[in-house]
Simulated assay, not measured.
Amino acid sequence: MQNTAPKIQSPRLLSLDVFRGVTIAAMILVNDPGDWGHIYAPLEHSKWNGCTPTDLVFPFFLFMVGVSVVYAMESKKATMPHGKLILTALRRTCILLLIPWITQLIFHPDGGLSHLRLPGVLPRIALVYFICTVLYLKTSQKTRDWIFVGALIGYFIIMTCIPVPGTGYANLEPETNLGAWLDRLVFTPDHLWRESHTWDPEGILGTLPALATGLFGIRVGTWLKRKDRDDSIKVSWMFTYGVIAVVLGLIWDLVFPINKALWTSSFVLYTGGLATIGLAICYWLIDIQGRKRFTYPFVVFGANAITAYVLSGFIPHYINKITLGGQSLYQILFAPYFSPVNASLVSAIFTVAILWLVMWILYIKKIFIKI
């Protein structure tokens, strides 16, 4: 990593920074409750099928990875060697892969390499980012659209038609679906999600539809970058695309349930549609109407998004180790003054505020940690 002041070569899309910042703040909020036993329902992931507001956070971020690829690569695509750009993307991908593995070794030294979880949020972001970058540099939008459709339909066929070895039939249950079987075969149970060891919500097969989420973002980013369309037309079509995608996702949900852990094709359409609508609203209010007063807190997060996410694993971990008189800060500051569920929420908001303060210091000092 390197700390550098930003070198802006083209106007930034402020609405994208804000949307990314909102998403990161939400990700920290839902990942760091004060008490995992007391959480408001909207701040929990769905048990299996279905979609809560929390389930929107990760696909929104992957969607923005796709949009960001367009804004980062459009001018470079025509002027720089593609091989150099791909090598840079590969270097960033390797760093993103290494961060969670090193973090696990720090937090769980007893487990060592023998119990290192290989899949995960950052590895999925890394793979989607790299593949999206290569596809954006080397293929046309029409080709990417076909890959998008092929990924969704192909994944549906794979998950619902191919019999699962050892089970004998295709199914979408947590431990017996084809993706879970493949993850156990490739990674072995010791290297899967610590809560289960029998399946992983960021497994191998799920990367295919996750790529489609990134391609959804590329499609929207390409549309936003067009110079032959008025802003009002862009926003209108973004709303239209978004609504159509949501409706298609809900229809597909009838036979291929919306499910974050499996990252089903219906989940891709549903969340991609909502992300498009959300970005359209931000684009209209911020970049077109110029309403920017409320944007600063979220831009602070959005400017160092990956850094904020990584630190959200470290800072709460060490805050929770602080004790006074044998009591944790949570027991001192929050538990005595709120109901259990509200104490958990206020603690999560406190964590967001602490991380925002760190990001604000980096922001005002113009330190932008680029991977």
Rank of each mutant, 00 (worst) to 15 (best):
A170C: 01
L345Y: 12
F216W: 13
P11I: 03
L172D: 04
I322W: 08
V310W: 00
F19P: 03
N31V: 07
A5N: 15
R194W: 14
I315G: 05
T176S: 13
V235Y: 03
V149Y: 07
F338D: 03
I277M: 13
I306S: 05
P33F: 09
P6G: 14
V358Q: 05
W193P: 03
Q2I: 15
F107Y: 08
L362G: 00
T176F: 02
H115S: 15
L285I: 14
T93Y: 13
S196L: 12
P174R: 11
I204T: 10
V235M: 07
T198D: 14
S328C: 04
K366S: 15
I233P: 04
D231H: 15
P33D: 05
S347T: 12
S236V: 09
M80L: 15
K142V: 13
A343M: 01
C51K: 10
G325Q: 02
K366A: 10
A25V: 02
Y283D: 08
P6F: 14
L118K: 02
L324G: 07
V30E: 08
P174M: 06
L250K: 12
D200M: 08
Y129N: 13
F338T: 00
W36E: 08
S344N: 07
I369A: 10
D17F: 06
P209L: 03
L248R: 10
A26W: 11
M64Y: 04
G50E: 07
V70C: 01
G221E: 00
L127D: 00
K84I: 12
T167V: 15
F314D: 02
T160E: 06
P81G: 10
V243A: 14
F61E: 08
V69T: 13
V18C: 03
G168V: 06
N3C: 13
I332T: 06
G168L: 02
I39N: 07
S312K: 09
F301W: 13
D228A: 08
K365E: 07
R124M: 06
R229V: 12
H45I: 01
I286Y: 09
Y155D: 09
N304C: 07
V121T: 09
A210T: 06
T323S: 11
S236R: 15
A180K: 04
V186F: 12
Y40M: 09
F314Q: 05
P81R: 10
L211F: 12
A210H: 11
R117Y: 02
C161L: 15
P123D: 00
K234N: 03
A151Q: 05
L96E: 08
V149F: 09
P11H: 00
K225G: 11
Q289W: 11
F216H: 14
R194P: 11
W36S: 09
L274N: 05
I95T: 05
Q9M: 14
I277P: 04
V186I: 14
V65H: 07
